[in-house]
Design a protein around this nucleic acid. Sequence first.
DNA 1: TATGGTTGTCTATATCAATAGACATTTTGA
DNA 2: TCAAAATGTCTATTGATATAGACAACCATA
Lengths: 258, 258
Amino acid sequence: MVGHDKRVTQQADNMAGQKVQRQTGVALWRQIADRIRTSINHGDFDDTGMVPPETVLALQFGVNRHTIRSALAALAQEGIVRAVQGRGTLIERKERLSFPISKRTRFSQGIGDQVRETRSVLLAATEEAASTELARQLNIKNGTRLVRLETIGQADHRPVSRATSWFPADRFGAIAEVYRTTGSITKAFRELGVPDYVRVTTEITATHADEGDLADLQLSPGAIVLVTRALNSDLDNVPVQYSISRFAADRVRFTIEN
Amino acid sequence: MVGHDKRVTQQADNMAGQKVQRQTGVALWRQIADRIRTSINHGDFDDTGMVPPETVLALQFGVNRHTIRSALAALAQEGIVRAVQGRGTLIERKERLSFPISKRTRFSQGIGDQVRETRSVLLAATEEAASTELARQLNIKNGTRLVRLETIGQADHRPVSRATSWFPADRFGAIAEVYRTTGSITKAFRELGVPDYVRVTTEITATHADEGDLADLQLSPGAIVLVTRALNSDLDNVPVQYSISRFAADRVRFTIEN
DNA sequence: TATGGTTGTCTATATCAATAGACATTTTGA
DNA sequence: TCAAAATGTCTATTGATATAGACAACCATA
């Protein structure tokens, strides 16, 4: 028996306590894979660095060992665990970046101390007319020209978010080029005459990953993404950026400090 | 590069554009049910008040009509749609409450203008010793006595959240009784000598609904819940409450105003 | 009232998900 | 070196999921 029954209070119910649900449209192996992934990220197996043996997991979850193996195979596919015959299933990677949201929310600063390198990659830049919704958010007239950027945020070469951002084209028509060279929205704003900006509103929802998420964020099907819709304004309270970002839910944690 | 250039119109692609994924451990009918639910909440069918015909949906999603029927049956079970033979499938209910998070985050105030009645139901009240984690959060000594409350937040008699809250027992030993009579944490605090309190930190994650969620929040299996871990302090910055709340993700939307 | 569009129901079939059992292979440690 | 413990592989079987087609029942409307 490995070290499971030790930390009774905080963890036991995370994995062992609750049974999986049958005939819900979500396969047992996927439910179990999600639960194990969460437990790993929660640090439940940090003492051994290994997942409990398949037979133990099968007993805990009340399923056949083959079902456990399917779940572990999925996690191995994600690169989270690695099974070694005769020894056990080792934890390869665990991560859930803490992501502060405040007036000064920026991608790189917030998680800078948790990873070695943060980077932002520009996928595409286009220009378009503001839709009704975007015009309302950015407080501009319907049809105003906007620059739209598609970006991916990386931490230690691992994608954690993909975002679509809109900027008023009259002020920030050149933001794509500037952003491409600086690799930072903050720096791009600075070069375009916006020394500082603040987060005005952030809206958070959750949904299942779509095809774009799977590709860009290297997620496994069925994963959850946290979706934020955020508005940034300059120091004169003029909106400068509206963004829709999608985060891999099992890799991030939002924290709001007041 | 699939999903990127489609977000132009903001909505149309929510449902139609992307195909469902096979052999992911998530049944097609469940993926489709989730997508349709999201579209309904997003207001995509507000013009007709009806979901498109089953044959159209089958074509859009690229599945058999029976699979669509399974998805719609699940939504009907949730009370979201109602199929009428010969006419179509009517939208019965659509809701996603906007939930502001700020220094003054309270359950009832935030969504008070969106529903007619908000209520909070006390499920259970127990006393226990503070775990290491809870002691850290509440800034007290390990093992200090705590009062634990299990509550459910309702809006118009529909559950939207379930929460577990801990309070230092020395100051708030009677909070269960007071809360039971007042039905409000804010009022209970006031009677116990805490005229006001502020939200210090809020942490947001997302996961699949567990059995407790299904029961308490009347969710359908496979649904997503948004999990918040929050710390409230009194005006002297002394922690008074730590809560873990679980919200039905398709019913709420968090907004952070700075 | 006739017709087209829509949901409801049925049968049949194929594939995936899960269980069950047996045994091989590898590692670890006594 | 041997035995226990762990993962790897195989076969067989059951139930859930999805497809396919056909037709009935019902509604709105021309």
